[in-house]
């Protein structure tokens, strides 16, 4: 038990009619880590999660959750699992406390143990003060927090969170991201899907990038970023003729490429700290003012662009 991966996915396939939603996905999530599935709308994230929670039967392939096969042992899978669905799955005409109590019972908790756990979860999701209000009176962010709270009741070993931060206010978002890290610190394994690369970047130990039903890259943040190369991009806007200064910058040691588009000049460099002063110096010599500078460290967004030729959010 100690050494099995929390989740091992082996060649999952799922089609809806002619639409191949998931086409042969393989990945492995270690116990106690946060693993993000990053991908644009329609990439197949929810379909994958649904198969991993035994709601959808895969056409092909299998997966093991804490050693239980989703094909042959769905009961075992469900017993170690908490699922936070992408769409709110709550009874809006009941209060937060009534919702948590009910779901607690569905997870097999009863009596004083249930009551205690409901109070603990209300604390975790920061809704203790408003626990006795009906969910339909809550803001979107508060509803999402209850939605997450439900999955925590039975202290599952593995928890799936499907885009838990979609469409909510920054405060609730912060609360949720913090609670994800808190879960990891308590030893839970989290499979987290998102199309916000900042979230994947901030939270995850490992990230898998998904597009059109396939994993196109998988690894730690650093490993993935290396795939785009170690280059940092510096975007600058200039006051004056850019032709001359671009020529001068190309000759600086450590600059690998200079290009311009719509008045924005992009410079690819190995180390922005070292090169930036030289860029300013060269511009000053030509009496050109730099009006804005934007340093873009290599990131997953760049990787996605690099791999697919498309931006992540289009």
């Amino acid at each position: 038990m100690i050494n099995v991966p929390a989740i091992a996915v082996l060649g999952l396939h799922k089609s809806f009619g002619g639409n191949q939603a998931v086409q042969g996905v393989n990945f492995e999530v270690k116990q106690g880590e946060i693993f993000s599935l990053l991908g644009p709308n329609g990439a197949g994230k929810t379909t994958t999660i649904s198969m991993l929670s035994c709601l959808l039967r895969p056409d092909e392939g299998d997966a093991h959750v804490m050693g239980h096969s989703i094909r042959s042992d769905p009961t075992g899978v469900k017993s170690v699992l908490g699922v936070v669905p992408q769409d709110l799955a709550l009874y809006e005409d009941l209060t937060a406390r009534e919702n948590l109590s009910f779901w607690g019972k569905m997870y097999g908790l009863r009596g004083s143990k249930l009551k205690l756990r409901v109070d603990e979860v209300l604390e975790v999701i920061g809704l203790r003060d408003r626990a006795n209000e009906r969910v339909n009176k809550y803001s979107g962010g508060m509803k999402r927090r209850v939605n997450i709270g439900v999955a925590l009741l039975h202290k599952p070993k593995v928890i799936y969170m499907d885009e838990p931060t979609v469409g909510i206010d920054p405060q609730s978002r912060r609360n949720i991201l913090d609670s994800v890290v808190a879960l990891k610190n308590e030893g839970m394994t989290v499979l987290y899907t998102t199309h916000y690369m900042e979230e994947a970047q901030e939270l995850s130990d490992h990230v898998a990038i998904m597009d059109h039903g396939k994993l196109i890259a998988c690894g730690t943040h650093e490993e993935l970023v290396k795939l785009v190369g170690q280059q940092t991009r510096i975007d600058l806007t200039l006051n004056g003729d850019s032709e001359n200064v671009m020529g001068a910058w190309k000759n600086i040691d450590g600059v690998s490429r200079v290009s311009s588009e719509d008045g924005l000049v992009s410079v690819l460099v190995k180390d922005s700290n070292q090169i930036l002063p030289h860029l300013f110096e060269a511009a000053a010599q030509l009496s050109i003012r730099i009006t804005s500078v934007d340093i873009r460290e290599p990131n997953l967004e760049a990787l996605f662009l690099h791999l697919t030729g498309r931006a992540l959010r289009d």
């Binding site: 035994c54 709601l55 669905p85 009874y91 097999g108």
Partner: peptide
């Protein structure tokens, strides 16, 4: 109907229910 459309049925099926 609400049980089905609000996805709570799906969620129920991810528990041992």
């Amino acid at each position: 109907v609400t049980e089905r459309t609000s996805r709570t049925l799906q969620r129920l099926l991810t528990t041992a229910t």
